[in-house]
């Protein structure tokens, strides 16, 4: 075991897969010589060589398309798109090619690629560096979408994603790379040191895709979250004094619906939290699934706490970001009924 932050845990996962599988390779903007803007690929080129971890030009469409070709011919590429906001030029390739190759070739071809990308707000990035685009991937049948919330899961989920034979979009909550963030910007920055989920085994292990984690067991209300919002929700629950059950989805496709349903049937109440804007966000799908399966167990309407339905603004970081105050309001509202 070693204490790692999320960057170190991800770097360690990549290091292990490069060492164990000669078909795995990493490329993307600034990932080679420079080691990545967030340092996730630091020293991997030095250690594994130029053909295993290398720089690509600023060509997101080309990067992902080339990775699909590599994957279809037996390689296992892991590409980094520097910010999730930059994936859109490659969206056609992900949707029409990566996600659909297996189906339209009757199972003869597929593209086992992993697209790693930092996402999310809390860093004053404005509208082109703060978005949470998970719903546009979740909607695409054929893609898997994974979002870790701590170093232990980050490593185990990334290895599982790379080893998975389906294309995986692996979204990394950049606000919590260096430490958990509880949504209270006025408080001192925390590091991962001492956090129980920062204790990471040094060798190979996986966290299965499609298995949620119960971060905090409880009986009164179920809270669903992923990424940064797991920590914000936990802090809000503690402040609220409620005995809420917090579920960290860890991957939204595949979705661990059984864990969600069991919890909501137990509590009868549910609040969904995500950073992405509300309308047609992933919370809408969760809400629909829950009411289909738990309608007669629900004691209150399902609540959603999300980013507002506006572009991510530069000036209103903490008004936009769904912080603890909004989550507590939704929890109380769920309890009133």
């Amino acid at each position: 075991m070693a204490s790692m932050n999320m960057i170190q845990a991800l770097n360690n996962a990549l290091d292990i897969t490069l060492a164990s599988d000669p078909d795995t390779l990493i490329f993307g903007e600034d990932v080679g010589y420079f080691g990545g803007v967030f340092r996730v690929t630091d020293k991997l080129q030095e250690k594994h060589g130029l053909t295993r971890c290398f720089d690509a030009p600023i060509s997101e469409g080309g990067i992902i398309a080339a990775a699909i070709g590599m994957g279809a011919y037996g390689l296992r590429p892991v590409v980094e798109i520097q910010f999730a906001d930059y994936i859109l030029p490659a969206y056609d390739q992900l949707v029409s090619e990566a996600a659909r190759l297996r189906y339209r070739s009757g199972g003869e071809f597929w593209a086992p690629l992993t697209v790693r990308s930092p996402y999310g707000g809390g860093i004053f990035g404005g509208q082109t560096h703060s978005q949470s685009p998970e719903a546009i991937f979740a909607h695409i049948t054929g893609l898997k979408t994974v979002i870790p919330s701590n170093p232990y899961d980050a490593k185990g989920l990334l290895i599982a994603a790379i080893e998975c034979d389906d294309p995986v979009v692996f979204l990394e909550p950049k606000r919590i790379y260096n430490g958990p963030f509880d949504g209270r910007p006025d408080q001192a920055m925390k590091t991962w040191a001492g956090h129980k989920d920062a204790e990471v085994p040094e060798g190979h292990y996986t966290v299965p895709l499609g298995k949620a984690a119960i971060t905090r067991p409880g009986s009164e209300v179920t809270v669903l979250a992923y990424g940064t919002m797991v920590h914000v929700a936990l802090s809000a629950i503690e402040e609220s004094g409620l005995d809420a059950e917090l579920i960290d989805l860890r991957s939204i496709v595949p979705l661990d619906i059984d864990t969600i349903v069991a919890s909501v049937k137990k509590t009868g109440r549910c609040v969904i939290v995500h950073e992405a804007s509300r309308f047609s966000g992933f919370g809408a799908e969760l809400s629909a699934l829950i009411q289909e399966r738990c309608f007669y167990h629900l004691k209150a309407p399902i609540g959603r706490v999300c980013g507002w339905d506006t572009p991510y603004p530069h000036a209103f970081e903490w008004d936009y970001f769904p912080g603890p105050a909004r989550i507590i309001r939704a929890l109380n509202s769920a309890m009133e009924n």
Partner: peptide, 9 residues
């Protein structure tokens, strides 16, 4: 280009 020199990309 960010941290990558022209010749590298």
């Amino acid at each position: 280009a960010m941290g990558t020199s022209l010749a590298r990309a």
